[in-house]
Amino acid sequence: MFEHPLFMIFLTLSVFIISEKIFVHFNKNSLLNPVLITIILIIAIMSIFDISYEQYKEGTQIFNYLIAPAIVALAVPVYQNLKKVRSSLSLVLSATLISGIGIFVSALFLGTLFGLPDAMVEALSTKSITLPIALEIAALTDGSFPLVVIGVFSTGLPGVIVVPMLLKLLKVKDEALQGLVLGITAHAFGIARALAISPLAAAFASIGMVIMGCFAVVAVPIILKLGGF
């Protein structure tokens, strides 16, 4: 039964729906992010019932084919809020570029400061970029794909927990700004969190992620080269 693809699909969807209900029930507490809770519960279930990663991967292969349509669907909230996006585009562009430089340079600086291997430092430079673009940059710079994946995920998940808490602490109530910060810092995870705020937040999160990715494709290889990596 555990090997059947339908079981894996049903398991994943059921756990996510339960996680989403927990998230909403506790007033959308950042510590109970549905993606994080889903990952924890799935890992626990796989351990209890001795389900291998290969079995789970094969059974949920269909979700990989849905990634592209899901990304295209992100254009919907952008289109719905196109007027607001256009009026703020110059500010969004400036904020994203400045943030991007700060993120990339600080990652390299901290990696070097703590004496991390070059491969890990390179992977850290792409930690705040959505995975498909990060992998393309890794291919251009001969980076390690596994390390890049770990870097992206280890940034995205904590990002959707920490960023909302910081925004609340700083009393940032502007939904567009909340979405932009989530998109820049936590890429696709940030967009998923922004969707829980509003379509406007999701629109700005999408724009932030896209601009950040486009900027990174040009900037990261140059920064790595200047840094001697």
Rank of each mutant, 00 (worst) to 15 (best):
F229T: 01
I161M: 15
P221S: 11
A75T: 13
L167F: 10
S94Y: 09
V172C: 12
M46W: 14
F63W: 12
I48C: 10
K168R: 15
L41V: 15
L97D: 13
L89S: 05
G111S: 05
L113V: 04
E20G: 14
S88F: 04
P146Q: 01
L147Y: 08
A119V: 01
A75Y: 11
A73T: 09
F2A: 10
I45Q: 13
A176C: 06
G190N: 03
S128T: 02
L140P: 01
I191Y: 05
P69L: 07
G115R: 04
A107R: 07
L147H: 06
L180G: 00
A216K: 11
P158W: 12
T155V: 04
S128P: 03
Y65I: 03
A70N: 05
N33F: 12
I48P: 10
N29V: 02
T112K: 10
I43H: 07
V121Q: 06
P5Y: 12
Y53G: 09
I103Y: 10
G183C: 04
I39N: 08
D50W: 04
V121W: 00
K127I: 00
V162N: 08
F189R: 01
S30T: 07
T130P: 01
Q55F: 03
L89V: 08
P69N: 03
D50V: 09
L169D: 11
S30W: 11
R86P: 03
V152G: 01
Q178M: 09
L135E: 01
A202F: 01
H187M: 00
L167H: 04
L177D: 02
T96H: 12
L131I: 05
L224A: 00
I133S: 00
K84R: 12
V220I: 15
S30N: 06
K173I: 06
M8P: 05
M1Y: 15
V92D: 03
F10C: 12
P117I: 05
E136H: 02
I40K: 13
I62L: 14
T60E: 03
F26V: 05
F215G: 09
V152S: 07
